[in-house]
Computed example of a mutant assay.
Amino acid sequence: MTSGRLEAFSDGVIAIIITIMVLELEAPKEYTLEAFFEIVPTFISYFVSFLYVSIYWVAHHQIFKIAEKINGEILWTNLHLLFWLSVIPFTTNWIGDGNHHTDVTPVVLYGFVLLMSQLSFMLLRNSIARFHGKTSKVAMCLDKKALDFMCVLIYVIGLSLATLNTFVAMALFLLVGILKVFELNSISKEVPPS
């Protein structure tokens, strides 16, 4: 089985996820600077979530450019990733709604969803590498164990610190996103152009 259909389906799901997030953004009711500042947490949560969904979309595209074939396990691990990505709009909305960006429960849930997205993407990459063979070029391009471990560790630290300071937790979640942008840059050098 080729990966084209899986990639097209995933692109559609990710496009819907981004659309749902942007539809959750509401303009201020008043035309004042104070009203704008009231929605800044909502916009920041949208920006971080958009960054994450974009990162996974680009990474997904890159790995399926080098994956020559797929199997049932890869289909299911891909759906596992899409499930966790599809929960991001809910957690984004909860954090951005009112003053919940400082509440522990929404921030912990948001971080947990991001952690599960990371773990499910790692599972997807491992499924692809295993299917193509551990010594294949595909497996070597997808081997990012050190960075994966560091990202998971930062998420765990962020989740642990959320009870003390939600801003520190969110900063750590954003740090993982920045690290993942650098990871994508390094992968793009290994992936042939479209």
Rank of each mutant, 00 (worst) to 15 (best):
L142F: 13
Q118A: 14
E73P: 01
D11H: 07
L172H: 10
L119F: 07
F149V: 02
A171P: 07
L79W: 03
A139N: 09
A59L: 14
I18T: 05
F9C: 06
F83H: 06
L85P: 09
T77E: 05
L114C: 14
L85C: 06
E183H: 13
W84C: 04
F90E: 08
F83K: 03
S86Y: 00
G12L: 09
A139H: 08
K137W: 06
K69S: 13
V87L: 15
I88L: 00
E24I: 08
N78D: 12
K65C: 02
L79A: 11
L85H: 03
G158K: 00
T163F: 10
S86M: 00
I88V: 15
L164H: 13
C141T: 07
I187V: 14
F90G: 01
A146V: 10
E30L: 00
S194F: 14
F36H: 06
L82P: 08
P192E: 10
V108C: 01
P89N: 04
I66P: 05
K145N: 14
L184F: 05
I95K: 07
E190M: 14
T19Y: 04
S86V: 00
D143N: 11
L147Q: 11
Y110D: 05
S49I: 01
V104L: 04
K189V: 05
L79I: 07
A162D: 03
L109C: 13
P192L: 09
T77I: 01
